[in-house]
Design a protein around this nucleic acid. Structure first.
Lengths: 88, 88
DNA sequence: GCTATATTTAGATAATTAGCTAAATATCTA
DNA sequence: TAGATATTTAGCTAATTATCTAAATATAGC
């Protein structure tokens, strides 16, 4: 929820790679995990951190849980970054 | 230097606050430290991480070392964030 | 050269965290 | 209901890191 959580979530390369994967659309936890050489448990841990940071949303569908980017938080980070560029 | 270093550097609230302080112009390590209830050594450590991440530059002037924002890296993060917003 | 000031470096510690394995939960199908 | 699949939770460990104190380095002025 907090800004701090968002930045912490983004500071891990695996989590940023997960976000990159999700650019092409929603994916199940298993599909996401296939791209990494880590256990599903570890991926689940990362997904939970991204979710807490509001960077992704999840949606259950039968056996699967689908994850999707949540762009609203990206807006906030964008504004923060831009505040350094604008003079004044 | 790396993207990873930049994000790690940004993931600490003290370091983000240092960056915010530097928005108003260059400041010495001591001036920066005055805003925090931490030892100078700790602030120095944070400054070193920000410097390694290329988010700030330093300039020695007599007894003092002045730190200043380096905006070029902010551009890169901005692009990364924006890559999520553009569809495709 | 000596002393005071500004900052960093070194070394230690406590807290956080990324990863694992194993167990638990949930859903589907036979 | 039993078994298979998908995912999460719990508990552990090794690595990282934010912080401290103490020591080191550098500069200025007497």
């Amino acid at each position: 929820m907090s800004f701090q959580q968002t930045f912490k979530a983004l500071s891990d390369p695996t989590r940023r790679e997960i976000l990159d994967l999700l650019k092409s659309g929603k994916k199940s936890a298993g599909e996401i995990g296939e791209h990494f050489q880590m256990t599903g448990a570890t991926i689940s841990h990362h997904l939970s951190i991204l979710k807490q940071a509001n960077l992704i949303t999840d949606e259950k569908s039968g056996k699967y849980i689908f994850y999707e980017l949540n762009l609203t938080v990206f807006e906030e980070i964008l504004s923060w970054i831009q505040s350094f560029q604008k003079e004044g």
